[in-house]
């Protein structure tokens, strides 16, 4: 199905983006450590006060992009007692309802993210890097749009491939 294929391709790109963010975040934080231990010991006078701020902002992007990908396989942590203890039909109904609510959640986040990025983000700059905060706030806006996309894909997959949607989250490696 075209939509599922499309989402799959988008997600592949997102995985690459996520990897790039995580690697940069690691290197930037590690650079901060290097400065303190190695450069200092070698008596090299440099400071990179921006490493911490950069890493933090990358982490924020990582959270919203990562969460959108987690939505695709229903990995967002929830308490599924009712879904699995009630009869199959009711369990599926509850699961579908909870996914619908999650979709509504992403709709709200898109609106809030939009307001934050395009109205408040213009007026505020980051303390160290001096970049407009819009660049950081945009993560919520974009992440939630991608999250909605993935929720639709999850729903369509269960309809067309006749998967029992209650168990999608268990097919993946579980996480804390």
């Amino acid at each position: 199905m075209f939509f599922l294929k499309f989402t799959e391709r988008v997600n592949k790109v997102l995985q690459i983006v996520l990897t790039a963010i995580f690697i940069t975040m690691t290197l930037s934080t590690f650079l901060g450590v290097l400065v303190r231990f190695v450069f200092r010991a070698l008596d090299i006078q440099v400071t990179f006060p921006w490493t911490e701020e950069l890493s933090r902002y990358l982490m924020i992007w990582l959270v919203f992009i990562g969460a959108s990908l987690a939505a695709r396989t229903d990995q967002l942590i929830s308490v599924e007692v009712l879904v699995h203890t009630l009869p199959r039909f009711i369990g599926i109904a509850i699961k579908l309802f909870s996914l619908l609510i999650t979709f509504v959640f992403f709709v709200y986040l898109t609106l809030i993210g939009y307001e934050l990025a395009f109205n408040q983000g213009f007026n505020q700059t980051s303390p160290i890097l001096g970049i407009p905060m819009m660049i950081v706030f945009l993560s919520m806006f974009l992440g939630s749009i991608l999250g909605m996309l993935n929720l639709i894909a999850l729903y369509l997959e269960s309809v067309f491939l006749k998967k029992d949607i209650r168990f999608t989250s268990m097919e993946e490696d579980s996480v804390e």
Binding site: I77, V81, S98, Y108
Partner: peptide, 11 residues
Amino acid sequence: LSVPIAASLGL
């Protein structure tokens, strides 16, 4: 109703 915890807190 098994809504993800982040969404439950947020909504």
